[in-house]
Each structure stands twice: as structure tokens, then as C-alpha cells.
Write a protein that binds this DNA or RNA. Structure first.
Lengths: 194, 194
DNA sequence: TGAACTTGATAACATATGTTATCGTCCGGG
DNA sequence: CCCGGACGATAACATATGTTATCAAGTTCA
């Protein structure tokens, strides 16, 4: 997944803004597929309103990998950079408004950015953040029980739990919807709120 | 984790070789800690002989994340780049011979490399490979059963199974040693070799 | 060589989690 | 206004996996 230059590095806005004119605005309903697993990513996606998830198919059983919300951007990075099929599908959860920037312009943009002094340092930082994110996800999967993962989600990213339908949460946590229900009811008993 | 410039990109050897003189050679026994979880990575490690693993501690219960062998190099990337504590411990599995290149020289090396035309493209490729690796690990954890993960390991990286003690494999697969034994004995029944 | 340690297998039992089925609620479109 | 679909809770049962304990076969090292 890519990052969004604009929000993360204001000093790069000037570059980003040059490409605004090449973006396409889309208003799309829930469950619209923006990139299909197995296809090659052709555009960078920026979310103005709504939310999307990335997932992969496992015998008709979706596994959600990540959620994205307003003012976040994404693309299948490996697919983008190496021109290989995407591991994931990208799909809206709610009806959304997104902007699409075709790959050729992203490549151009990256090329322009490579002229910026110390851009490599930025790039290193960006990637090490992404790597950190994925290794943390991995570690959490290895180390934590689904119940712990749910509690982490609740405390660290409560907006996800509030906004996203529960079966997507279950698929993100790596458990069945039934078991997530169990976890919730167990937690509810432990900590009654009044 | 970093990559090893030298083996992956021969055209960069000339840069790498300039730093050979700053490397320290170490002969160390099994179970030697090269970087401790929570400390800041101070050097890049290159393995001449032997093998090492990275793991994190979970209530005295190690969880192995990755294995490295001859002619591979590693460092805690995030720790390196951002000067933050490493999420993992790096430890030898067998008695090994390693070379250490202090961080300051790696930084210098990276700076020199940033002068190379199109180095950014290389860097993008390097990082997208790393990202792909971690996302594949993550996907495998989410999608596959421990038995499937073991079979994947057997078919794709049999040298690991042959060389690494079984309890490290179990910890890498995310199961108890007892359960890995069960998996092995189950597979042995299914496919008798004679 | 003997003792301590490491490695691995197995059994018995406990717990966690998946699967299937059923039910209730809510919500949006005809 | 009603109906169907999406969403979520729960029960009953099946399976996967962890935990603890025990044993056996190497390995290392004094």
C-alpha cells in the first residue's frame, strides 16, 4: 500500500498539486470494487469521503487486511512498482467519493520527487513506517489472542469498530463472526457499562 | 530488516566494497545475541557462516519471525532508520561467523548510493520486495492452517526445516512444539516414504 | 565416561475456535 | 407498508490447538 504524500509531507504539496488536474472524481456505492485481486494496479486511490477495505479471497471466505478512511490514499504498491498482479482486492464499504490518479502520472510524480534533495531520506522513512506497520500486524497475529486483538482495536482505533460492519472486523481479526460475537459478549459481562 | 546490497545488486558492489575495511569479523557460538529487543540497532550484520533468527519475547515464550543463512545480511530497519528500539532480538542458532558494519558507515554508504542515477528505482524495488515478503507472511498467517504453513515451508524452503531445530520451527509457525510433532506424525502417516 | 542439557515424540486432558443452524432486528426499496 | 436482505446474537456440536507430564535418544563438556 502506498501512502499519501500530501497529508504526510506538506513540503511536497507543490508536487502533488500539479497532478490534481489528472485525477478523476468518482461517486460510488458500497461494495464497489476498485481493484480486483489478481489484476495489475493502474491507479492511485485517494478517499475524499467514505471508507474502503483491502481483502483477499480464501475459498469464498474473505479475509480483510486493512481499512482506509477519509483523506487516506492507497494503491497496491508491489503491483504498482513491479507491474505484477495485486494480492488484494480493494472495495468500498460505504458509499464513497474517491479520486483516481492513473499510474503513469504517479510514476511521473515519483520521478519529479526523486529530484528533491533528501527525498531518499523521506522515502526511507515512509517505507520503514510501512514495514513497521506490517511487522506490527504480523507480530500481533502471532502473539495476541483474537480477544486481545479486538481490545487493541477498540482502544487504539475505535473509529474502525464504530464504523465498520462487524463481519468485516471479524475477518480482519482472523476469527469467525460467531467467535467475535462471543468475544464481545464475554467482554460485556466483564465490564458492564451503566 | 535490510537487504544485502552486494548479493542483490552486483552493479553496486563497488560502493559496498569501499566499506569492507570497516567491518568487524566475529566468530561466535550458538545462541549469541547480536541485537537485543528494545535496544537500538547499531550495525548491519552480514552472515559468512552459520545462521541466525529474529524473534520477540512473549512472556518468556519466544516467537521466531525469520531465519537468515550464509551470505545474507540483516539489520532492524526501523531501528536503524528512525533510531528507535528494535522490535526483535537477533540471535545465532548455530555457531557462526558474521561481519558487522557500524551504522555510521551504513548511513554513509546509503548517502553515497543516493547519488547513483535511478537508485530510487532500485530502492523502490527493494522495499516493495520486503513489503511483499511481509504481506505474504501476514496473509499466510491469516489464511493457512499451521499444517499448511508447515507444508509450504517444507516445499518452498526445505533447507530451513532440515537445518533449524524443531522448536524454532514451531515458534516460527506459531504453534506449540507438541502440535508441530502432531503435524509431522500426521503427515508421516499420510505419505509413508520407503 | 557420566551428568546435564537439548531435542523430539507421545498421551491425556483443557481450552479456544470453527461450523451450522436458528432467531431477531433493522433498514431500504418496491 | 411490507418484504427481503444485511447484520448480529446465541446454542450445540465438532475440531484444532495448547498445556502438562513423561520418556527416549542424542550431544556437550568437564
Amino acid at each position: 500500500m502506498l501512502f499519501h504524500f500530501k497529508t504526510q509531507f506538506p513540503e511536497l504539496n507543490v508536487f502533488w498539486d500539479k497532478y490534481l488536474e489528472f485525477q478523476t472524481r468518482l461517486e460510488i456505492p458500497a461494495k464497489t470494487v476498485l481493484l480486483e485481486e489478481g489484476k495489475i494496479s493502474q491507479q492511485y486511490i485517494f478517499i475524499e469521503k467514505g471508507c474502503v477495505r483491502t481483502f483477499f479471497n480464501n475459498n469464498g471466505n474473505d479475509k480483510t487486511v486493512q481499512f482506509f478512511f477519509e483523506n487516506e490514499g492507497l494503491a497496491s504498491l508491489e503491483s504498482f512498482v513491479n507491474n505484477i498482479p495485486s494480492q488484494f482486492t480493494i472495495e468500498t464499504i460505504e458509499s464513497s467519493v474517491v479520486y483516481l490518479l492513473p499510474k503513469q502520472y504517479v510514476t511521473q510524480l515519483l520521478h519529479e520527487l526523486s529530484q528533491v534533495p533528501d527525498f531518499m531520506q523521506l522515502l526511507l522513512q515512509i517505507f520503514s513506517r510501512r514495514l513497521t506497520h506490517y511487522t506490527k500486524e504480523l507480530v500481533s497475529f502471532i502473539r495476541d489472542t483474537p480477544e486481545e486483538r479486538y481490545q487493541n482495536l477498540l482502544s487504539e482505533r475505535p473509529h474502525i469498530v464504530q464504523r465498520v460492519p462487524q463481519h468485516y472486523i471479524a475477518s480482519y481479526l482472523g476469527v469467525s463472526t460467531v467467535h467475535l460475537s462471543r468475544i464481545k459478549s464475554k467482554l460485556a459481562k466483564g465490564k458492564p457499562h451503566f
